[in-house]
Structure formats: structure tokens, C-alpha cells
């Protein structure tokens, strides 16, 4: 065997090992969701001896269906939040990119500077403001804070800057209205960037725990991520029903993995937004 081949085999083994480490916790989560609590305590790593769907059933019935309710909450909140964020940001990006108007550059620069300030700083103020408006424990408090996303605005403007102005002039000559130009010409051309930003925004909201755990006390409006760590039952083998928690983890993870497998390229492209100039 020549040196090249040995190196290749060695590197392949290293990458396989890393891949196994990357997959193991996910596989454990998946397998254990089909085991009973006592089997997990004895045997976390193996394939389930007897596949049981009882955890999934127990989770559906848990606390009169709160898991189903909160899963739908999460889905709805993340979708609406992502849609509004991108509509608002793309409208503004269109103006900043394709129009000359008084204050154009100054306003944009001011917005960019605020990107340095983490949103978490506003948490005490948001809590007080929404509490005084009696709007804690609503969907609004989960959707509106953070809705003006400067990162999305910046990325979309950058992309629109690369689109030739002649496109818009041509549309104007054809008598297209300004909103029509935005809707029918600019937005379709921005699809790759909008898609990548949608993935990032949706995942960010879907994952969020800090904000909803601070702003909500009513279970019916909570996202599933806040309910997940609180699961407990009196008839479980242990004080904490690991089997239920791992089943819940599987439920919030598997849909994402399926979407990820379909849109791999888009997911990984969303990570590099802003990192590399195309």
C-alpha cells in the first residue's frame, strides 16, 4: 500500500469516528423514546428490546393534550414570526437599496450600529411594558419583540444591491407600480437569501427558551420548549420520567431533521450568510 492510500484510510476512519460521535446522542434520544423507563435505566445505548409506542401515547394524553397544543403553538408562533420578520425587512431593504431619499444612509447606519446591542438587554423592559399593557401570556408577546431584525435587513439589502437597477427601470417603463415591482420582480429574485434567512429565523424562534420562559406563565399559550423540561408523572418508575422527556425531545427534533435532509444545501448555506462574499 502506498502512503497516499494509508492517509486516505486513516482520514476516513477519523471522519467516521467524528460522525458516530455526532450521531450517537441523537440515536440514543430516538431509541430511548421507544423504551420503558426501567429499560432506559438499565440499557440506554441499545436498540429497544421491545419497541413500544406507549411513550408517544402518554405524551399525547399528558395533561389533557398540552403537548399537542404547545407543539401547534410553537409551529404557529415560529411561522408567523418568520413571515412578518422577512416581509418587514425585505420591504425596508428594497427602499434602502433601490431608492435615493433623504436620510437613507444615516438611518441605515444607525440601524447597523444597533446590531452590536444584544436583544437580551431589552428583556426587563419588555417584561414591564407588556406586563403593564396586560399582554404577558399572549401570542403577541412571543411574536413582536425582535420583529425588526437588522441582520435580515442588512443581508437582504446587500443582496438587492447586487441586482441591476435596469430591472426596476424596465418595470417602471412598463408601467408597473412600485409595490408590484417589489412583489413580482425583487422578491422572486431574492428567493435564495430569503430562504436562508427564513431557516435561520424559524430555527431561532423554534429553539427559543429564555424569552418564553420569562414572559409566560399560562401553559395554553406556551411554546413546547418551555413545557418539555417540566414533564413529570406520578406513575413513572423514577422521579423524572426520562422516557417521556426523550420522547418529547424526539418530537421537536425529528420534523427538523426531515426538513434538513430535504433542504441540506439551503440549511448549510444559511450558516455562511455574511461570512463569505459570493
Amino acid at each position: 500500500m502506498n502512503k497516499r492510500k494509508i492517509i486516505k484510510i486513516f482520514l476516513t476512519i477519523v471522519l467516521v469516528l467524528i460522525s458516530v460521535i455526532a450521531l450517537l446522542p441523537v440515536i440514543l434520544m430516538l431509541f430511548d423514546s421507544f423504551k420503558t423507563g426501567s429499560e432506559i435505566a438499565k440499557n440506554s445505548w441499545n436498540i429497544p428490546k421491545k419497541w413500544t409506542f406507549s411513550n408517544y401515547k402518554a405524551l399525547m394524553d399528558y395533561n389533557s393534550g398540552i403537548m399537542v397544543r404547545t407543539f401547534i403553538n410553537s409551529l404557529g408562533i415560529s411561522t408567523i414570526y418568520t413571515a412578518i420578520t422577512l416581509i418587514v425587512a425585505s420591504l425596508a431593504a428594497f427602499a434602502f437599496s433601490k431608492y435615493r431619499f433623504k436620510g437613507n444612509k444615516v438611518i441605515f447606519m444607525l440601524l447597523l450600529i444597533t446590531m452590536m446591542v444584544p436583544g437580551e438587554i431589552t428583556l426587563p423592559a419588555i417584561y414591564l411594558m407588556f406586563s403593564k399593557a396586560h399582554m404577558l401570556n399572549t401570542y403577541s408577546v412571543q411574536i413582536f419583540p425582535g420583529i425588526a431584525n437588522v441582520f435580515c435587513l442588512f443581508m437582504l439589502k446587500q443582496y438587492m444591491d447586487s441586482l441591476p437597477n435596469s430591472l426596476i427601470e424596465a418595470a417602471r417603463i412598463d408601467g408597473a407600480g412600485e409595490f408590484y415591482t417589489y412583489r413580482k420582480i425583487i422578491v422572486p429574485l431574492c428567493k435564495p437569501t430569503i430562504g436562508a434567512l427564513a431557516i435561520l429565523t424559524f430555527l431561532g424562534k423554534w429553539n427559543d427558551y429564555l424569552w418564553p420562559s420569562m414572559l409566560l406563565t399560562k401553559k395554553e399559550v406556551m411554546p413546547i420548549m418551555v413545557i418539555l423540561p417540566t414533564l413529570n408523572t406520578s406513575n413513572s418508575t423514577y422521579s423524572i420520567p426520562w422516557e417521556l422527556i426523550l420522547t418529547g425531545c424526539t418530537i421537536v427534533t425529528v420534523p427538523l431533521i426531515i426538513v434538513f435532509l430535504i433542504f441540506q444545501e439551503q440549511f448549510m448555506a444559511s450558516v455562511t450568510l455574511g461570512a463569505v462574499k459570493e
Binding site: 471522519l15 467524528i18 460522525s19 455526532a22 450521531l23 446522542p25 441523537v26 434520544m29 430555527l203 423554534w206 429553539n207 427558551y209 420548549m225 418539555l228 423540561p229 418529547g248 425531545c249 424526539t250 421537536v252 427534533t253 427538523l256 431533521i257 434538513f260 440549511f267 448549510m268 450558516v271
Partner: peptide
């Protein structure tokens, strides 16, 4: 190797 990033932080 990217997959762990897709699993929600909570999970």
C-alpha cells in the same frame, strides 16, 4: 457532522 446543530438546544 452538521446534524447536531439542527437538534433544538432544549432537546
Amino acid at each position: 457532522i452538521f446534524l447536531p446543530q439542527i437538534v433544538p438546544v432544549m432537546a
